[in-house]
Simulated assay, not measured.
Amino acid sequence: MLRLSCHCGQVRLELATRPDYIHACNCSLCAKSGARWSYLHPCDVTVAGPTNRYSRSDKADPAAEIRFCARCGSTTHFVLTAAAAAKFGNGVAGVNMRLADEDDLAGLELRYPDGRAWSGEGAFGYVREARILGAGAGLD
């Protein structure tokens, strides 16, 4: 189990399983929120503490609703919007892995999807090769 928290500690997340990889997406939402996402089934993510929400306004039908701490503003996780869950099923939640202890991330693959160029259909292209995180190596 992994335990994560926002900067002030008001929002805490527990992951029942370790993710297979982390995405460092370059789309405007991910870049401006400072998030590096792992994707898990919603039943494997427990969130405690008050969050505010944001859905991007530059998309006619945004798929994700970003959540962030109501006190310190740290991006914590995302859930699918109702429209996206109806279309794709509610089988994914995103967790901002920048909130994790760096040592807990050792051995995970960090991938760099080209979200800016992604149409929203099909697989991501990637802007550079993935790398494996090492203990104390951080997410930079």
Rank of each mutant, 00 (worst) to 15 (best):
P50N: 13
R128G: 00
Y21N: 13
H41Y: 10
A100R: 09
Y21M: 02
V95E: 08
Y54H: 08
P50A: 15
L105K: 00
S119Y: 04
A84K: 03
G91W: 12
H41I: 09
H41V: 11
L108F: 00
R67F: 14
E121A: 15
C30T: 05
A117K: 04
D44H: 13
R98E: 05
A86V: 00
R71S: 13
S74L: 02
D103E: 06
A16Y: 04
R111K: 05
W37C: 09
T51E: 14
A100N: 10
R12P: 15
A83E: 08
E129K: 00
F68K: 02
W118S: 01
R53M: 15
S33F: 09
C43K: 14
H23N: 10
A93C: 10
T46I: 15
V11N: 05
D44M: 12
D104A: 08
C27P: 02
V11M: 09
S38H: 07
N90S: 12
T75K: 04
P50Q: 14
E65G: 09
L15M: 06
L105T: 00
L2W: 13
C69F: 06
Y126F: 12
R116W: 01
P50S: 14
A135I: 07
Y126C: 01
S33M: 11
V95M: 06
S74D: 04
D114V: 02
A70M: 02
Y39H: 14
D114K: 01
G122L: 04
A35W: 01
E102H: 11
G49S: 12
L40T: 07
M97E: 08
T17G: 07
C25L: 04
N96A: 14
V95P: 07
A35D: 06
H23R: 08
A60R: 03
H77Y: 12
T46L: 15
L15I: 05
A135H: 11
G136A: 10
R128Q: 04
P62N: 07
L133G: 03
I22E: 06
G138P: 06
A106F: 02
S57D: 15
A24V: 07
W118D: 01
W37D: 09
A35Y: 05
R111V: 06
L4Y: 10
L99A: 10
A60M: 05
R71Q: 08
R56T: 13
A64C: 05
S74H: 03
L40E: 08
P50C: 11
T46S: 15
N90M: 06
Q10E: 14
E109F: 01
G34D: 07
D20P: 14
I132D: 00
G89F: 02
R111G: 05
D101Y: 08
G120R: 02
S119D: 02
F78K: 03
R71A: 11
G107I: 01
R131T: 12
E65Q: 13
E109M: 06
C69T: 03
A16M: 10
G49L: 11
A106T: 01
D114G: 01
P113L: 01
Q10R: 08
D44E: 15
A70R: 05
L80A: 13
C8F: 03
C30A: 09
D104W: 00
R67W: 11
A93K: 05
L105D: 00
V92G: 03
D104I: 00
R71F: 09
A106L: 03
K59H: 14
A93V: 11
V47Q: 10
R12M: 07
R12F: 08
L139Q: 04
T76A: 06
Y54C: 06
